[in-house]
Design a protein around this nucleic acid. Structure first.
Lengths: 347, 347
DNA sequence: TTGAAAGCGGTACCAA
DNA sequence: TTGGTACCGCTTTCAA
């Protein structure tokens, strides 16, 4: 683990001062073209790579950004957003020589502490905020800490620079499709309480139904996990007049709900239509295949990283909005069976 | 972003030298008990957190370790190992004040380059190696770079310190169960060629069948993705005498295979039994529920992190083996239908 | 037990 | 265009 070669070695070998080496490497003015060429050649020959440690201490930059994932481990393990988002972030960071520091926290409190430490010990230059809550305590925290941050899918009024993908169009169009098929009793399996997108999705679901002159069906909150979807089934479907369709706030919950419905003797889609949200790959391979709303976490990650880097560069940044979500109609959504309790008119 | 408070402030406030502050904070001898207490009290009052930058430069430690994930983005997005492994790693790192630097690479070559850079610019003190190939070029690379590393599920002969979870017991027991149910024509949907665990799983599948006096069925290689499982269906099942059971090297491929079989008019489990590997949560909620082998990526991650930290501390480390995998028998595996081509003896 | 001072590997200012 | 040099914030000798 000897990295014997430092800027001093390069300077000596090229017979210049370290100041010149630094300037040459960083493409700063003040070095003649030929000196610069000589220095770079020597650096290359010696295999010199500037040490991040020295550079960080001196330059006041960690060349790293942070992401704290805050959710229960079990949920996280199958989370569809996570990996794709990070892949998008990484694709941008890599080109700029930045690294991603990933941390996980099981609780709100733990996550707060991780952010605080990352800022205090200067491990990162900025962070991403995902899973935004309506009144998110991390926003004032980061302001106090002076740590640059980019919020992902935050509320429009959020004071932080934000990147967003509009959930509404895809979901709205999906629920409209549900209504168009003839469903009049449509329930909602919502996400975790308090999260912004949980509210957004609930609001859209409700508004489409109301606009269609229908009464919104029951709402049950889950936590995005398959397990929570399964658990929600009895509460959602056990009544005397169960809904004919359930719009779920995540694909995993939708899968769980299908499973839970099956345990109650209800078949999807013949007895019940179910839709998800996220567009996880596996949804297309299930039986029935899962109707859902396709999201683009990878592009969101890339946009978030670009915004954060721009912020760190001191550029003015504006909120970014990537293309909206789109509905994906598949087998788990069909027209409802004719209701038996309401006899046909022409009898 | 002013962290005005440095070791100098603490030293001044406590009226001691910075050397004493450093010694006190790091629990080193050479400071009297009362001086130490006073220093710590002042540090606490001032809210001083030692800067990683100064510490790293001086102490020759980055207090970070790296993980380069090397797989196609699409596969990664639904990878069941990934998130859980990282969660396990993080749970250990966090307690020691270490951070995880996560990088992604789409190709072998890109991954190699990321490892090289991480070592050369001293961003991390050590790395994890996952998805070990039989002759893994990263092993000599890291040796040359002098970067400490821990291998995950490597070959027994691997020169690197390793943590492993034995795949064999769970899979062996599962295949035995398949045979015991009466399947005599059992195929295998293997993982990516060249990976160590792909070979291991293939070998176990084969040996159980051979030991039972059966001829191993066809083998098709996939890439662990759902999509690849679906694509494998025709090759695996389209022959004149399709197998009655397929043992898959991953749950996602198993799900894809079930889907692909359905497209060929084959129902699981009535026409075909399918088993997976990994034990992803969603498997228990599918129809039919997925028979699989449960793995423990989280504990593997924790063990890997502990081993790596020990290695960085200069301690002697021995390979770690966590508890073996276990089979999980569920609905996708049933006894084969009586073969029609072989008439019952008692006719 | 304490403190002064020399690094660690860069960046950047200021003279020459 | 160059080189000398003072930091950046901490760790770690080595004297006092």
């Amino acid at each position: 683990m000897r990295s014997r070669v430092t800027i001093l070695d390069v300077a000596a070998e090229a017979q210049v001062s370290i100041a010149s080496v630094s300037a040459a490497l960083n493409d700063r003015p003040g070095v003649s073209t030929e000196t610069r060429a000589r220095i770079l050649a020597v650096a290359d020959r010696l295999g010199w790579v500037p040490s991040l440690r020295g550079r960080s201490l001196s330059g006041k930059r960690a060349y790293a950004v942070g992401l704290v994932l805050e959710r229960a481990t079990t949920v996280l393990e199958s989370d569809p957003f996570f990996a794709a988002f990070i892949a998008g972030v990484e694709s941008v960071l890599e080109r700029r020589g930045y690294a991603l520091v990933l941390q996980m926290a099981g609780t709100h409190k733990a996550a707060t502490e991780r952010y605080r430490r990352m800022a205090l010990d200067h491990r990162v230059d900025g962070v991403f905020l995902t899973d935004m809550a309506a009144t998110d305590p991390r926003v004032p925290l980061l302001r106090d800490l002076g740590l640059p941050a980019v919020a992902v899918n935050s509320d429009p009024g959020c004071e932080l620079p934000s990147v967003r993908q509009d959930h509404l169009p895809g979901l709205r169009s999906l629920v409209e499709q549900v209504v168009a098929l003839g469903h009049s009793d449509v329930a909602h399996l919502a996400g975790r309480r308090g999260l912004i997108h949980t509210r957004q999705r609930l609001a859209v679901w409700r508004s489409v139904l109301v606009d269609a002159g229908l009464r919104p069906g029951p709402v049950v909150y889950g936590d995005f996990s398959t397990e929570s979807g399964s658990r929600a089934a009895p509460r959602l479907l056990a009544g005397p007049t169960p809904p004919s369709a359930v719009v779920c706030a995540s694909d995993l919950m939708a899968v769980g709900l299908v499973s839970g419905a099956g345990a109650l003797g209800l078949d999807v889609p013949s007895d019940l239509s179910v839709t998800g949200f996220d567009g996880i790959e596996i949804g297309g391979f299930l039986r029935p295949s899962l109707t859902t709303v396709a999201t683009a976490p990878r592009r969101l990650g890339a946009a978030a990283a670009e915004t954060l880097l721009r912020l760190l560069d001191g550029d003015r940044v504006e909120d970014v909005e990537i293309e909206a979500t789109t509905p994906v109609l598949r087998g788990s959504l069909v027209a409802p069976r004719p209701t038996r309790s309401v006899p046909p008119r022409n009898v």
